[in-house]
Nucleic acid binder design. Structure first.
Lengths: 148, 148
DNA sequence: GGCAAATGGTCAAGCTACTTGACTACTGTT
DNA sequence: AACAGTAGTCAAGTAGCTTGACCATTTGCC
């Protein structure tokens, strides 16, 4: 595969990713959850299952724990999460989503589904499913750097 | 398609995009072009064909023209581009890549090709080509927001 | 042609999300 | 009991963006 083809693929991928991010964020805002930036979504994704510590979150986002702590301050202040004492470790605190945090997560899923529906309209369900499978297979396990 | 599937697709897409961005940037640095951030790559892509004005660049990047002007200052200072008088409009200035800027663009293409090769190793050339076609078809025309 | 409105670009100041550095509190190993 | 390592926060500095104001030039309109 030639360099120019690789560049075309890269450009398309980044353009689609940028637009998707924007659409999800707009969809979340449109559903009544304000004061959130895309980076918060990545944090919610890590908190969603069972909560996480600030240090976990920092590693997941690829930022310092000070930055992660500050981000947690923000979503706590806005009512999306709360800090609880950690059951095993008295130094640590477990950050968990509130009911409002869960509602916001569901809103993000709906917004993502809306965006994907637009792709289904263009490519068909079969192709979009293939797209998903391919992307899942090449997706890395590491931190989700929300910056470029 | 269910919301959770859409979320899985979205997460994979954003993860791949984040990793790709990072890899391209690292590849460019490894080839001897320092002091550049991913956002500069998006600027180079706009400047590459025939140059552009600061206002064009701002629209393309989705930022204010002050921010674009500042970014141009930076790449001019580092020798990747230069400002020329605009042939048709005495208010405007045409920003064009220097030879070093072109070399950097080629380095970015090589780095992108390296990243894509890793995907070919996982999925095979045929699947990667299909991936490219699908992404190109759903890629938007608008500004390339280098932020999420 | 002449003049108001629009446009390209820059200067200046302010904001915000991040960084590095220093510190306290607790853990766990020896 | 002592001590190195880890979780988290406080504080200060930084970098990239914003808004606001301004000048020079172009464009649209009578």
């Amino acid at each position: 595969m030639q360099n120019s083809e690789a560049m075309g693929l890269s450009a398309a991928l980044l353009a689609v990713a940028g637009e998707l991010t924007q659409r999800i964020n707009e969809g979340v805002v449109a559903r009544g959850f304000e004061g959130l930036r895309p980076a918060h979504g990545f944090a919610f994704a890590r908190l969603a299952p069972d909560g996480a510590t600030v240090t976990d979150l920092a590693a997941h986002l690829g930022v310092t724990k000070q930055a992660a702590s500050q981000l947690v301050d923000e979503i706590v202040r806005k009512g999306y999460a709360e800090r609880r004492p950690h059951p095993q470790d008295a130094r640590a605190r477990l950050v968990v989503l509130t009911e409002r945090g869960w509602a916001c997560t569901r809103a993000a899923e709906e917004a993502a589904a809306d965006a994907v529906r637009a792709w289904v309209a263009l490519l068909g369900e079969r192709e979009v499913r293939a797209l998903r499978d391919q992307l899942v297979r090449i997706a890395p396990y590491g931190p989700l750097k929300p910056a470029w």
